[in-house]
Design a protein around this nucleic acid. Sequence first.
DNA 1: AAACGCACTTGACAAAAGTCAATAAATTGG
DNA 2: CCAATTTATTGACTTTTGTCAAGTGCGTTT
Lengths: 189, 189
Amino acid sequence: MPNHINDLFSVLSSVGKFTAHDIQQFEQKAVLKHFTKGTELLSLGQISQAVFLVVSGSTYQFELDREEIEEQVIGLYTAGDWCFNHASFVSQRGSRSVIKAYSDVVVRELSIFSIHQLLASSPAFFQLGALLERGVDRLTYFNSANNAKEKYEMLVSKNPLLLQAFPLKMIASYLNIAPETMSRLRAKK
Amino acid sequence: MPNHINDLFSVLSSVGKFTAHDIQQFEQKAVLKHFTKGTELLSLGQISQAVFLVVSGSTYQFELDREEIEEQVIGLYTAGDWCFNHASFVSQRGSRSVIKAYSDVVVRELSIFSIHQLLASSPAFFQLGALLERGVDRLTYFNSANNAKEKYEMLVSKNPLLLQAFPLKMIASYLNIAPETMSRLRAKK
DNA sequence: AAACGCACTTGACAAAAGTCAATAAATTGG
DNA sequence: CCAATTTATTGACTTTTGTCAAGTGCGTTT
């Protein structure tokens, strides 16, 4: 994943086969938006109406505990990542998580309406279904890891860029381990 | 959840508003099928072409480790539950998990094609999206639990019927805890 | 009835991870 | 640029969980 997405071609190509015309269509529908650091792209209780492709900067997604104090990180996104609340988007219920800009961020926003238009314009966009599925992959990703060390090593090998983009505290929360445990894992190897 | 689903009305009503005609349509498209104990409803590598509504009996879903020996349970389903591999179904890739009949089981099978037909016949079936989403809920369900005790108590309070339908060994695997740990949790309270 | 397999329990111990506390390093804001 | 805050590390200790092993109860088979 590059630090900044200049060409949509490389991003979309990883999903399926698209013609130049398809990509042009996409570019038209997926409007560029800028969010300053700390802004919420999706708020608590809000119904998700769009998915975001991170162009530059980083965003994260978190849930709140009962007292709405502790933040449990459930997603970390950098340039090239698709970021959205899958549950809220698919079922059109209020979101139980928040998506927030961790830094100043540029995204391409693709609304449900635009997705329907793209689907109508070219069958290639059915591949977007696979794309949406990736949002879930992230959540179920670390299920196969049996302990903290395995989780950390999976992250290092598959998403090394996250280590530079986010503080370890957030990464520890994402992996659902104590920051001290994470710090010790790093010291060992 | 009842032990046996006689009327589709109650099942569908929990998803959205359906007319008698809608339900009749559904009944026609979702064909009844019988699987004997141990039969695979979805095999490893197979691309999921349908979702199943369990009518009676029970099914389970599991992943295999690298040596294909250890089974990691990722889903337990009894009457009234929708059972399918969300990732394979949505993205149309080969399944990395297996769905198997734990007992003799009767299901209603709803193919992708039938879903498209239902969507075309009535807008009410857009609510099926929410239904499909529930498959994911199960996976992400126990993420909010911090330890084995919380996981077990969540299961007891939300899915008590599973305790009767499946051996504790499988439930322990589903919760990703050692069967001994589970046994001790039960002894305490 | 005896032998067997299987699920479950229990005990003893080891390993893993969390908590609390002190400190160091880095970042931010005035 | 310095003070204040946040973030990361490290040590000591506790709690939780896993592992290994032995034993019990129950149903099935022969």
